[in-house]
Amino acid sequence: MVTMVTAMHMSDGLVNAPTSLVFGAVAVVGLVLCLVRARADLDERTAPMAGLVTAFVFAVQMINFPILPGASGHLLGGALVAILVGPWVGTVCIAIVLLVQALLFADGGLTALGTNITNMALIGVFTGYGVALLLRRFARRSRGGLVATAFVAAFVNTVVASLGFVLEYAIGGSGGASLGTVFVLMVGLHALIGIGEGVITAATVGAVAAVRPDLVYLLRGTATPLVRKSAPSTPTTGGAA
């Protein structure tokens, strides 16, 4: 079985050393900001909750989806975590997944860690969340709206994250290909990947919203209070929790 490769994980040597270091600094600054805001989202529960969500993202990236007979791919999860746990915690989770992959699994180069975190964690998650925010009106109206929002967010997230790669290549690429070729190749490839990412993200968000809509970050503050249809015959005393 062929696993569809995602060209998003950059290796060492794709961009030159100064560019790698600049984007390393961008990644550190962005990550620190996200850590501060994530703490505000999750208060003292931050470490265990973010730890478990990160483990979830890691496990999800191992699950293969069918695309066509003989070809399968896996979820990147940027838009998924943005919609489910919000952009701050989501960015931290994706960044830590990338860090662990680089240190423990030799997946993505050590000097490319900065560009990888910038593309997939910072640009990816925030683009996905931005799109979801723009469409929040529809997402809150119905299940169908939420599913469609998740699809669009995941699709745009994947394509825009690949534009991050094109930008870094334009600044400090190792040369050998014209920028136009790289642009067409990356955007074309990731538009295809984005469709798969969108379908799976949409179905997953729909499934979570069906059982625990209170966990979906995008829907926070929308829960309509339960309306009591008929008054209870006898007043209850004390909570029967």
Binding site: M49, P69, L75, A207, V211, R212
Partner: peptide, 27 residues
């Protein structure tokens, strides 16, 4: 075999998220 048959797997991932989140609360 095809992308449009991925519904059950995606629902599984949804359940996996809910379980992970709730496990986080217990942890």
């Amino acid at each position: 075999r095809f992308l449009w048959q991925a519904g059950a797997t995606a629902r599984g991932i949804g359940a996996l998220f809910v379980r992970s989140y709730e496990r986080g609360e217990r942890v």
